[in-house]
Design a protein around this nucleic acid. Structure first.
Lengths: 228, 228
DNA sequence: ATTCATTGTCATAAATATGTCACATTGACG
DNA sequence: CGTCAATGTGACATATTTATGACAATGAAT
């Protein structure tokens, strides 16, 4: 839950305020006074979130945002834009280059915290390489094996990735488009309904080895993996 | 983001100016020339914000404000006072009766918009993804689960959204049209009474799991979720 | 070339949710 | 107490969503 948050802000007073606020909220704040410093820092650690001032000396915040969103390595990092003007135009431009949210100065700490929380929550669920065990099922990403009580499941590549994703994030509900994003990846020229079919195949494989109702349908929303 | 804003102003020219300004900012303007008209309108829809002239024929603005802030149903609605005099004393009196902000005539549309925006941002809690717990009920949007003492509630999509809305704003009466706006969203080609039916279904699910009277009827007004 | 596994899409069935109506209750008020 | 309006309730036709089986395209393995 604690996250690494990079603050890019040239005004020392504001930066101080921000980092104080962040650390109090239990996060780990990294600070940079310019885009250059930020890039340097990011060579070390990729942050979970970037709070980026609109106006910066040297490269502007918006330019930096565009750059980050264009890079495969950093495109997934959410960005919250910090802008002095509350103009609608700026908001649009900010969101255009891929900022995930924006806050206008002066901001209330409460509001900022709320937005940080919201953005972090949207953070794409991760899939680890460690073996996972949920509800009597054991999935090992390394060996590409899934074993249920005794037997071993026979899954196709897509089914495996789907199950891997679901087991990496049990309990929570995943919409079809979320699943497509995470399991199918970029080329989402695939129908939503396709997810249903693969869920079906997965379910068949599961019930064949005696696992019932591990994957639940949440009508109108999506699917959920959970041991009841 | 768009909000219902009630303008109470007896001077037609100013009212025109105000509503024009509001609609241009993407809001929905309701107009009243007097307190009486305003009260009539508010029986239909509770606005998100009231812009209230200080001097009005019949009941004065300040009196109306006091009344509104004294009523459980309307006390949460923010009020921006509109006054010709810039006297400090008036400001104090306005804030005393619960006005959230005030603007002196003549006002610049920009300033007014800024204040509206600020006030609206402070307004009633939105629906978030955070788990909510009220009256022994726990609703978790992420897992899409509702659990009462022990048992888990089985709700349809609409019922879930409805409960989520009510629990996000407990201890507060919601008119049917408010509920329709927030829970049904755009497609409001739906009868008011439909809300009743869904409330009914929700209540059934609640009582089946031993929760009594969590949803109360306020005759002539709407419904309220509260732990007594 | 042939076989086989996998995958995405459909068509159709099955399940479930939704909105409205008719009628029953309830409450406010003279 | 009687009347009117507001709300509670059950039923039901319709709409929406999901499950399922079949199929053709693809590509890898034999």
């Amino acid at each position: 839950m604690p996250a690494n948050i990079l603050v890019v802000e040239d005004e020392p007073a504001i930066q101080e305020l921000l980092t104080l606020n962040l650390t109090q909220a239990g996060h780990n704040a990294l600070r940079a006074l310019s885009v250059e410093q930020a890039q340097l820092l990011m060579r070390e650690t990729l942050p979970d979130l970037i709070i980026l001032d609109w106006m910066l000396p040297g490269m502007s915040g918006i330019e930096f945002a565009r750059k980050l969103k264009g890079d495969e390595l950093t495109k997934a990092i959410p960005i919250i834009m910090l802008t002095a003007r509350g103009e609608e135009a700026d908001k649009v431009r900010g969101l255009e280059v891929g900022a995930d949210d924006y806050v206008t100065k002066p901001f209330s700490p409460r509001e900022l915290n709320a937005r940080i929380k919201a953005v972090l929550r949207r953070r794409a669920p991760q899939m680890t390489d460690d073996p996972i065990e949920v509800g009597g099922l054991r999935l090992d990403p390394m060996t590409h094996r899934v074993s249920g009580n005794g037997a071993t499941l026979d899954l196709g590549p897509t089914e495996f990735r789907l199950l891997h994703y679901l087991m990496s994030n049990p309990e929570r509900v995943h919409s079809r488009s979320q699943v497509l994003d995470r399991v199918w990846g970029d080329r989402v020229f695939v129908e939503d309904r396709t997810v249903d079919v693969h869920i079906r195949r997965l379910r068949r494989a599961l019930t064949e080895t005696g696992h019932e109702q591990l994957i639940q349908t949440v009508r109108g929303v999506g699917y959920r993996f959970s041991a009841h």
